[in-house]
Design a protein around this nucleic acid. Structure first.
Length: 268
DNA sequence: ATGCCAGGTAACACCTGA
C-alpha cells in the first residue's frame, strides 16, 4: 500500500503506556487502540523478544511497529500510524548495559519520539539504585545532545520517579522507596531544566493525579496510585501542544496493566 | 509498605515489579 500523503498541519495524538507484557495485554491494547485512536504509542515492558511481539495483530490495527525486546523483563516498542524512520534502540554509552529500556524513532516525518522504561531502583543501598541513577545521568546526557537541533522531540515513558509528594497517595509510606528519593527527583528535575515540558502538567495542576495503581490491596478501588508516567516535550514540541491527559479507562478493565496511558495532542 | 497481585520462566517454586 503506498504511503498516505500527510496533510499539514494535522493534529496527532501521542500516548505512553507501560503494558506489563504485550502478550498478556494484547486484547486490551487492541481495544484501546480502536477506542482511543492514538497516532503514536510509546510502549514499555513488552516482556518479550522481538520475534514474539504480536506484530501482525498491531499492524492489522493500522500501525507500523518497531520493537526493542528482551526475554521476560523490560522491552520497549513504538507504534505509529505513520512510517517509522531512523529507529535507534538503546542509550549510548551503555558500558555493558543489556537491559532493553530505550528506543527512539522519527514519526510523521518530523517528530523524534523516545520510549523510555527507566529502572525502578529498589531496594535502596544496592547496585539497583546506583544503576537507576547512572541510567538517569546517561538519559539526561542523551537528551541534552538531542535537544541541540531545536526539533520537535518527545521523551515518553515510565520514568519510575514520583516527582512531588502530591504525586503519590501516601508519600510517607514511600519514604524508603527509590521512586521518591531526593536523588531520583533531582535527576528528574534535571530533565525539565534542559527545557523539557511535562505535557500533562500544562493542562492539569491538581494533586493526586495518577498513572499507576498497584495490583494489590485494592489500590485501584481506593485510588491509591502513583504518577510516574510522563511525556516530556522539547520547546518546539511544547509549542505545538494542544491538549494532554491521563486515560484511566484501561486500568479499570479486566486483565488490566497496572499502568494506564498518558497522552498528548499536538499540531504538526 | 511489603509482596496481600500479576506476569514470566520453568517447573508445580522463585524472581521481578514500584
Amino acid at each position: 500500500m503506498p504511503p498516505t500523503p500527510q496533510k499539514s498541519p494535522r493534529k496527532i495524538k501521542i500516548a505512553t503506556w507501560n503494558v506489563n507484557s504485550i502478550k498478556a495485554r494484547l486484547p486490551n491494547v487492541l481495544a484501546w487502540l480502536k477506542e482511543a485512536q492514538p497516532d503514536v504509542v510509546l510502549m514499555q515492558e513488552i516482556k518479550c523478544v522481538d520475534e514474539n511481539f504480536p506484530r501482525t495483530e498491531i499492524e492489522d490495527a493500522g500501525y507500523n511497529v518497531a520493537t526493542h525486546g528482551q526475554k521476560t523483563y523490560n522491552g520497549v516498542a513504538i507504534l505509529s500510524k505513520s512510517p517509522l524512520e531512523d529507529v535507534q534502540p538503546r542509550l549510548p554509552d551503555g558500558d555493558g548495559d543489556d537491559h532493553a529500556r530505550y528506543m527512539e524513532a522519527t514519526v510523521f516525518g518530523k517528530v523524534r519520539v523516545a520510549s523510555i522504561y527507566l529502572p525502578n531502583g529498589n531496594p535502596l543501598g544496592t547496585e539497583k539504585f546506583t544503576y537507576k541513577l547512572t541510567w538517569m545521568e546517561r538519559l539526561r546526557n542523551h537528551m541534552k545532545r538531542g535537544l541541540m537541533d531545536g526539533e520537535m522531540r518527545i521523551y515518553g515513558g515510565d520514568y519510575n520517579v514520583i516527582p512531588q509528594d502530591d504525586d503519590v497517595y501516601n508519600a510517607k509510606a514511600f519514604a524508603g522507596d527509590a521512586l521518591l528519593q531526593p536523588e531520583s527527583r533531582a535527576h528528574f528535575r534535571s530533565f525539565l531544566h534542559l527545557g523539557l515540558t511535562n505535557a500533562f502538567r500544562e493542562f492539569n495542576q491538581l494533586p493526586h493525579q495518577y498513572s499507576y495503581w498497584d495490583y494489590q490491596a485494592g489500590a485501584w478501588q481506593k485510588d491509591n496510585g502513583l504518577l510516574i508516567d510522563f511525556l516530556l516535550l522539547s520547546p518546539r514540541a511544547a509549542d505545538a501542544l494542544t491538549n494532554a491527559g491521563i486515560d484511566k479507562g484501561p486500568r479499570g478493565k479486566e486483565k488490566a496493566s497496572d499502568h494506564t496511558p498518558v497522552w498528548c495532542e499536538m499540531t504538526v
